[in-house]
Design a protein around this nucleic acid. Structure first.
Length: 557
RNA sequence: CUGCCCGUAGCUCAACUGGAUAGAGCACCAGCCUUCUAAGCUGGGGGUUACAGGUUCGAUUCCUGUCGGGCAGGCCA
C-alpha cells in the first residue's frame, strides 16, 4: 500500500534501493513508522526484522547491511540500528523544512490523493422515509455520509450521493391516516385517535396545508393538495411531498446535498423486483415452503433462510433491497457504501447473500456498510428526549438551531461511528478550549489575524529561507503537517472521519503551543518570513481538513 | 438461547491495522497576559489495556473461553 507521507515516500525509495542489493527479489512489505519515542529518530523501518525469517538471518546483521547500502541523501542526518533490528532514521532540518513549500504550492489540493482516480463509488445515506422531520441519528448519518463523500472525492474517486426511500409502505399509510384524522378535527389523546398514528405537531401543519389546497415542492417532487379529507391517496401524496420538503430544509441547514433520490416503489414499477426474483429462481437458490418463496441465504453465511415472497403474494422488504443493489452495480458503481444505524445490521448478511445468489458478478463484500449507534442529547445536565415539533424525538434542526451547523457536524464526527455518542449542547456553545470545534477554528482565526497585522502578500513568502525554524514547537508542527495526507487517506479507507477530527485537534494544539511560545512578527526579517510561511502552511491544512468535514473556517472569531 | 459490535486513566476518547516506555482532552493541583485574540499556553499526579489462556522476536491489536454493556434475531421495515 503506497504511503502518502511526503518524507516516508522518499525514505521508502532509499530503503528500497538498499534492499535491491542486500536481498534482491525478497518479498518485503516496506513499513516506515513514526516512533513514539523521539530518541528513536524521526522514522523507523522494520524491514530487517521482516526479512529475518525468509532469509534465516539475524535481523540486526541484516539491518547493518541495509544501512551500509543506503544511498547518500540530503534528507538523512543519521541512520542507526536499535532494539531487535529497527533501523532508525534521523532526518536533517532541511528535510522537514521542505514540507512548507510543498504545502503552500499545493494549496487547496494539499492532502488530496489519486488512489481512486478512474473509480466510482455510490454512497447511500440518511435514506429516511418521509414520515417526519430528521432526528439526531439522521444527523449523525448525514455528517458521516457527507464527510465520507468528501474524503473519497479527495482520493480521486467519482462520488455519487444517493438518498433511498419508500413512499408507499406501511409507515406511509400510517402517515396518511394520521394526517386524515387530524384534518377531520381529531387530536392525539381523543378517544377516536388511532393507536398507531403519529402525534407530532407537524401532522397538524400538514393537515392544515392540505385543507388549504397548498402546493409543496421538494427536491424530487411537487404536489398540489386536493383538499378533500376523504381522498386518502391525495393526502398520502401531499404528506410525502410535504415531509420530503421538510427534510430538504433540515439537510439544507446542515449543508448536505444529494445527487439523487431513489424510490423503492420504482423498483416495482420498473420490473426490477420481478427480474431479481427470476434471477434467484433461475440460479436454483429458492424453494417453496408453507405457501411462501424462500431464499437459501444460509448458503452464504446467514444463520437462517429468509422469506422472499409471503404467502399473501407480496415481497418482504429485503427483495427490493437486493434489486436496488443489483441496480447500483449495473449503474456502474464498482463500490457502494451504505451508512445505516446499527439496528439494521441484520440486513447485511441477507442482502449480500441475495447479491451472491443472483450470480450477476457482484464481488462478495458488496456493498460496504458503515453502521453507527444512537445519539443522545444533553442540555443543562439533563437528557433531552422530546421535541414538540416531532412528538417523540429531538430533531436535527433543533440541534442546529440550539448550537450551529459547524458544532453539530464536528461533534457528530468526533467519535467512531460504532460508539454511542452523547451530544452536549452546553459544550457545543462554549467559547473556550473545552469546545473542540472552537479550539480548531480559533487556531485558524489567530493565523488570519497575524497575516492581517503583517499586511504583506503571501507570495512574498515563496522565497523564504526556512532555516530559522529551529524551535521544538516548530519542528513538532512540521512533523504534524507532514502527516496530514496520510490521515486523509486512512480516514477515507477506514470510513473513519473521526481520525481527521482528532488530527485537527492535535494540529490546532501544536499551533496554539507555538503561538504562545514564539512571536511571529519579529523585527528580524528572515525569522519573520520563515514563521509566516509555516503559519501559512498550517492555515492551509486546517482549512482543507475542516472543509472535508463540512465545517467552516472563520477568519475572525 | 443464537449472531454481530463494544470493553483502554475517575470521565470522554486516541493509538499510523502486529512494534520499542499505551497517548490527548476534561476534572484535580501549581504557574503564565505593558506582546500577533488568555476563546490561549506551561508543568504535575494519575494504567495489570475487563479477566484467563494461546499464537511469535514482540499483542491494546490476531485466535479460544469467561464476565459486563449495546443492537439484532417476524411471511414487520
Amino acid at each position: 500500500m503506497p504511503s502518502t507521507h511526503p518524507l516516508k515516500d522518499q525514505l521508502a525509495l532509499l530503503i528500497g534501493a538498499a534492499l535491491e542489493t542486500v536481498a534482491p527479489g525478497a518479498p518485503v512489505s516496506l513499513e516506515i513508522e513514526r516512533p513514539k519515542n523521539p530518541g528513536h529518530g524521526d522514522f523507523s523501518s522494520n524491514a530487517a526484522m521482516q526479512l529475518a525469517r525468509p532469509l534465516k538471518k539475524n535481523p540486526r546483521e541484516l539491518a547493518q547491511l541495509i544501512v551500509a547500502e543506503l544511498p547518500v541523501s540530503p534528507l538523512i542526518a543519521k541512520a542507526e540500528i536499535a532494539g531487535a533490528g529497527f533501523i532508525n532514521f534521523h532526518l536533517t532540518p532541511a528535510a522537514w523544512h521542505g514540507i512548507v513549500p510543498q504545502i503552500r504550492a499545493d494549496g487547496t489540493q494539499f492532502g488530496r490523493g489519486d488512489a481512486g482516480t478512474g473509480h466510482s463509488v455510490l454512497v447511500e445515506f440518511v435514506s429516511a422515509n418521509p414520515t417526519g422531520p430528521l432526528h439526531v441519528g439522521h444527523g449523525r448519518q448525514a455528517a458521516l455520509g457527507d464527510a465520507i463523500c468528501n474524503l473519497y472525492a479527495a482520493q480521486g474517486w467519482e462520488v455519487y450521493r444517493e438518498f433511498y426511500y419508500n413512499d408507499a409502505g406501511v409507515q406511509i399509510a400510517t402517515l396518511a391516516t394520521s394526517v386524515q384524522v387530524r384534518a377531520k378535527g381529531l387530536k392525539p389523546g381523543d378517544a377516536a385517535w388511532p393507536e398507531a398514528a403519529y402525534n407530532g405537531d407537524y401532522i397538524a401543519d400538514i393537515a392544515a396545508d392540505f385543507l388549504a389546497r397548498q402546493t409543496v415542492k421538494s427536491d424530487d417532487r411537487e404536489y398540489t393538495a386536493s383538499g378533500d379529507v376523504n381522498d386518502l391517496d391525495s393526502i398520502r401524496q401531499f404528506a410525502v411531498a410535504y415531509l420530503r420538503h421538510e427534510q430538504d430544509l433540515d439537510l439544507k441547514a446542515f449543508a448536505v446535498r444529494f445527487d439523487n433520490y431513489y424510490l423503492e416503489s420504482s423498483l416495482y414499477t420498473s420490473g426490477r423486483v420481478e427480474s431479481t426474483v427470476q434471477k434467484l429462481e433461475d440460479a436454483g437458490k429458492t424453494y417453496e415452503q408453507d405457501g411462501a418463496l424462500w431464499l437459501r441465504t444460509t448458503d452464504y453465511g446467514d444463520d437462517k433462510d429468509r422469506v422472499m415472497r409471503k404467502s399473501d403474494g407480496t415481497y418482504t422488504y429485503f427483495v427490493p433491497d437486493v434489486a436496488y443493489h443489483i441496480a447500483k452495480w449495473e449503474r456502474g458503481f464498482e463500490r457502494a457504501i451504505n451508512i445505516q444505524g446499527t439496528d439494521h445490521h441484520g440486513t447485511i448478511a441477507r442482502v449480500r447473500a441475495g447479491l451472491q445468489a443472483a450470480g450477476v458478478g457482484i464481488p462478495a463484500g458488496y456493498p460496504d456498510y458503515l453502521l453507527h449507534t444512537m445519539v443522545r442529547v444533553m442540555r443543562g445536565g439533563e437528557e433531552v428526549k422530546i421535541s414538540k415539533r416531532a412528538g417523540s424525538y429531538v430533531t436535527l434542526r433543533d440541534l442546529i438551531e440550539w448550537t450551529s451547523k459547524d458544532a453539530v457536524r464536528f461533534f457528530l464526527l468526533s467519535r467512531k461511528a460504532d460508539t454511542e455518542y452523547i451530544f452536549d449542547v452546553d459544550l457545543a456553545l462554549a467559547r473556550n478550549t473545552d469546545n473542540p470545534v472552537y479550539y480548531v477554528q480559533y487556531a485558524h482565526a489567530r493565523i488570519c489575524r497575524v497575516f492581517e497585522e503583517w499586511g504583506g502578500q503571501t507570495a512574498a513568502l515563496d522565497s523564504a529561507d526556512l532555516a530559522p525554524l529551529t524551535a521544538t514547537h516548530e519542528l513538532a508542527l512540521l512533523q504534524r503537517l507532514a502527516e496530514y495526507p496520510e490521515v486523509v487517506a486512512t480516514a477515507a479507507r477506514e470510513l473513519a472521519p473521526h481520525l481527521l477530527v482528532h488530527y485537527l485537534q492535535m494540529l490546532a494544539g501544536d499551533f496554539h503551543a507555538w503561538y504562545n511560545a514564539e512571536k511571529f512578527l519579529v523585527d528580524e526579517a528572515a525569522t519573520r518570513l520563515a514563521r509566516l510561511a509555516l503559519a501559512d502552511a498550517t492555515r492551509i491544512a486546517i482549512v482543507n481538513g475542516l472543509t472535508l468535514l463540512g465545517v467552516s473556517a472563520p477568519e475572525k472569531m
